[in-house]
């Protein structure tokens, strides 16, 4: 095989996620009453990027064959923090944004430290830390409310000249500035290697502990970016337990739809972003097709099941039963 064929094969799942998104979104835009205008794109983008940021965070951890069930709680904690800190003078706003991001990073690093040095299983460790982070969010904001600097909020969630949604530009910028350099760095390779086989990565002299710490740290950081966006969209903060668990679970669904393997070591954040956008667009698709909103949760569940069962087609190609058990 030629070089480009290998690369194509490696990016196959990401590319199919992009293709599915384009098809679904085209359907959505075509059926939308108002036609495809800047406002339609803006609303869709703002709703989509929230889950997209959390999904990017989840993707880093899933690539290491871990799972982070606290992303939703960090997302909500960032939202609550932002609604108290990101207000006032420009200097205070800047400080607030940095403080929220640092808090998210710190939450992620705590998860990482517990998983790497505490040697707890990620799934249970992050359930426990998730409870703690959600408690902190409740402490910061016992009642929904708060205030957000509206200039900044409007700038981030509004439109650029030409009707391009600025939240989408922000998402693209972060992918280009963080994901692409990360994927090409030694740390990036180490994250993938840890996910493929931790023991082999260790034997190859890769920094497995730092790679895992970095992955969990990024998970917290990106969840906090998502939480910041939520506060920009709602102009307030709310410690909602429902939102926390919904975003945690949807982020897992998004990375899987985006072609990231739950066994680790395969997939990309770009896939996760499109997985998140697919997930949100399916939600909206029902409205433009005038289906009863009551059908929405069932439809979403069936689509999720169908999407994950689609991967089972590989079973038809298995020659030896033992390959079923993998791992």
């Amino acid at each position: 095989m030629k070089d480009w064929q290998y690369r194509l094969r490696g990016a196959r799942t990401t590319l199919s996620a992009i293709a599915v998104f384009i098809v679904i979104f085209a359907l959505y835009a075509a059926k939308h009453d108002g036609g495809f205008t800047g406002n339609v794109a803006q609303t869709a983008a703002n709703k989509g990027v929230l889950l997209a940021f959390v999904a990017i965070g989840q993707c880093f951890v899933v690539l290491t064959a871990g799972i982070d069930l606290s992303v939703g709680a960090v997302f909500i904690l960032a939202d609550c923090l932002a609604s108290t800190l990101v207000t006032g003078s420009p200097l205070a706003v800047a400080f607030g944004v940095v403080a929220v991001l640092v808090a998210g990073l710190a939450c992620g690093l705590v998860n990482g430290l517990i998983v790497v040095y505490g040697r707890l299983q990620p799934i249970v460790a992050t359930i426990a830390t998730g409870a703690i982070y959600f408690g902190l969010a409740l402490w910061v904001r016992p009642e929904p409310g708060g205030d957000i600097d509206s200039n900044l909020a409007d700038a981030v969630t509004g439109q650029l000249p030409g009707g391009i949604p600025s939240s989408l530009v922000l998402l693209l910028a972060i992918i280009l500035l963080v994901w692409v350099p990360f994927r090409r760095s030694v740390m990036g390779r180490a994250v993938y290697a840890v996910g493929s086989s931790e023991a082999s990565a260790y034997m190859s002299g890769l920094p497995i502990r730092r790679a895992k710490l970095l992955a969990y740290g990024f998970a917290g950081l990106f969840s906090a970016v998502g939480g910041l966006m939520l506060s920009f969209i709602t102009y307030s903060g709310e410690a909602s337990a429902t939102n926390a668990s919904t975003y945690t679970l949807n982020s897992i669904a998004a990375v899987v739809i985006g072609g990231v393997s739950l066994f680790g070591g395969a997939g990309s954040a770009i896939g996760a972003v499109f997985g998140a956008l697919i997930f949100r667009t399916i939600n909206d698709l029902l409205f433009v097709f005038d289906l009863d909103p009551l059908w929405q949760p069932l439809f979403l569940g069936l689509v999720l099941l169908a999407a994950v069962s689609f991967g089972s087609l590989r079973l038809l190609r298995i020659r030896n039963r033992l390959e079923l058990f993998g791992q």
Binding site: I252, V256, G301, L302, L304, V308, S312
Partner: peptide, 17 residues
């Protein structure tokens, strides 16, 4: 052979629906 973490999540959504 779908990972249980995602399949049971889907069934949860279907049951909710």
């Amino acid at each position: 052979r779908v990972p249980s973490m995602i399949f049971t999540l889907g069934i949860d959504a279907v049951a909710q629906g």
